[in-house]
Design a protein around this nucleic acid. Sequence first.
DNA 1: AGCTAAGCGAGACGGTACGTCGTGTCTTATT
DNA 2: AATAAGACACGACGTACCGTCTCGCTTAGCT
Lengths: 190, 190, 190, 190
Amino acid sequence: MIELKGRGGRPRSEQAREAVLHAVDDLLLEVGYAALTMKGIAMRAGVGRQTVYRWWSTKAEVLFEACVDDAEEELAVAPTRTPLAEITSYLDALVRFLAHSPAGAGYRALLAAAQHDPAVKQLIATKDVLSASASAVLNRVDPARPADDQAIARLIGPAFFWIMSGRDPAQLDTHELARSFLQDLGSEVP
Amino acid sequence: MIELKGRGGRPRSEQAREAVLHAVDDLLLEVGYAALTMKGIAMRAGVGRQTVYRWWSTKAEVLFEACVDDAEEELAVAPTRTPLAEITSYLDALVRFLAHSPAGAGYRALLAAAQHDPAVKQLIATKDVLSASASAVLNRVDPARPADDQAIARLIGPAFFWIMSGRDPAQLDTHELARSFLQDLGSEVP
Amino acid sequence: MIELKGRGGRPRSEQAREAVLHAVDDLLLEVGYAALTMKGIAMRAGVGRQTVYRWWSTKAEVLFEACVDDAEEELAVAPTRTPLAEITSYLDALVRFLAHSPAGAGYRALLAAAQHDPAVKQLIATKDVLSASASAVLNRVDPARPADDQAIARLIGPAFFWIMSGRDPAQLDTHELARSFLQDLGSEVP
Amino acid sequence: MIELKGRGGRPRSEQAREAVLHAVDDLLLEVGYAALTMKGIAMRAGVGRQTVYRWWSTKAEVLFEACVDDAEEELAVAPTRTPLAEITSYLDALVRFLAHSPAGAGYRALLAAAQHDPAVKQLIATKDVLSASASAVLNRVDPARPADDQAIARLIGPAFFWIMSGRDPAQLDTHELARSFLQDLGSEVP
DNA sequence: AGCTAAGCGAGACGGTACGTCGTGTCTTATT
DNA sequence: AATAAGACACGACGTACCGTCTCGCTTAGCT
């Protein structure tokens, strides 16, 4: 037996929960993260403000829950024949996610907020979708060598910096990035 | 001569300007970027609110002016004998700047804000201290090959991602990063 | 016989009813009428909110039911030998009730609320404890002359105004008030 | 020299002050005291909420300032030839004020609130318009005998109770009240 | 004994006012 | 003309209470 929580009381409304998450998705695109407010979310969702505060403490938490699932899905790439194709395909997905996806916009906003808000830092640390996706790809490319953080940073870093520093995603040569990453991988200190 | 501005009137107070910039520096460390406000800056600086608005439009502009000079200085590394030492030294400076320097905290906050504020994006684009410093190092290491954005991203990216994603700066192996970067440099497609 | 209500169903809980009335009594003294809330009453009584709303529409109704019985009792004075003693004794009880009794505090609050809430006005009109008590005394003092509203107002008014306008009840000379009231009574236009 | 306050700063807006006071007057009649809110006052006045809170702490304070002047004016009666006419005229004005005047509605609301709010009690004690007006009449009727609180209570009390307890003002015989009051006055203990 | 129905505690729901704070603008007197 | 001071209209903050609703659980009278 597990379900021991709250014996009485009206159960949480799944409808309200979804309305809030959809409202956050919509508003992020329409007004941006800075103009995203708890009040605005509640109004857009047709929900009382207390209902939002009851389940989420900050707009960052709502946004995190709203886009973490999409993020995982968008960063998963299909297996390919060669490591080069696999890495290139992953980097393309990464750039697409960070630069164009709604979920990516949410992720960038959260990562930005985490730079000056320890609570958000801790929040996004609970599910590090970027590292996890890179780790999955690396483990598939070279199952013998377990993916470490340093390798993940070398894989993700250049594209990540490219997007975060505001450069044009179309100008990034992901194929060259993948080639150079794999060369390092095959030539590390013996 | 030079002073061609408004014919009459009181000149701008240099004292007020410096008080504002120092106030921003102090407050960023004390309360963080999110809690940084124009009102708070003015109060801390002992300056009228209008005086802040007269010379800067947003808190981002004040912060930018307050930390861009420090940033340039901290990211300049002394020339070294070998490329490997030079690159390693630069990456160390980069990590130190992003992870520990007050100016770096300001830069991170601005770059974060730029993710959802086009005005801030444009602002920090006017003086890309990170790319400029990397460019300087690259040109010194290999004067024959002019530094391009892709190489800059490969150099800065991994360390940048490491810090921005909240990893411990002490765990980053900059020497290994430098080695792998230089290997790519020497082996690019002929 | 008589019990024609709903054929089935759980009967009303007398325990809950009393808990609510006691809670209102307690809270009125502790936090005052303004801070008295339906939610607070339910919590203090250890009762569901709906249970309060099921039997009373407003906090005024609960309070009325909670203090009307006490009020009647406190305003009833024992017969005395002389009219003067009787009237004085009644005025003393009136002042004691209005100024010091918990039930009187409830009555003052309700009468105050009635000034801007027609529903409360109608509510307290259903059982005018003040006038009724005065009427009883007057009828005993002079059975020949039925107590009219004007006489009741002359009897109650001065003390009522004294308390309602915040004056010190100890400074009121009820004996003098009684003497002057009786003089009027005996000298009205023939 | 007196005007030493605040050397700098924008002066208080008289326009905003009047807009707020008029808004309170209007809203009291339209929605009643219970539904009167600081937010509503600010909106109706076309004024920021902070502006209201800057100068008044509670809706009671705003209302007090809004109706105290009207109250004083409405309770001042013109001198008459006979004491009976004077007293009757005053009682008529008193009833008219309490039962029909907007300012009187405000006064009743405040006096009601004072029953359970010490701050309001203290507030209305700073300018006791009812007692002051009665005092003025009594001093004119019998300059030899200075008006005491007990006499004031006997004069005001009956009419006050009549209105506060919700009776029909038209049914009150002020002439009889005045006659009986004057009889007491002339026959007090020697 | 089983069924039906209303009351019960609990607590989430959509709303709205609270009093505070920061926004960017404005209006003073002073320098 | 720039300054320090501070009032202005505006609107988001997070909290509290409103009155309603939906749960699972009594607790009775009526088959």
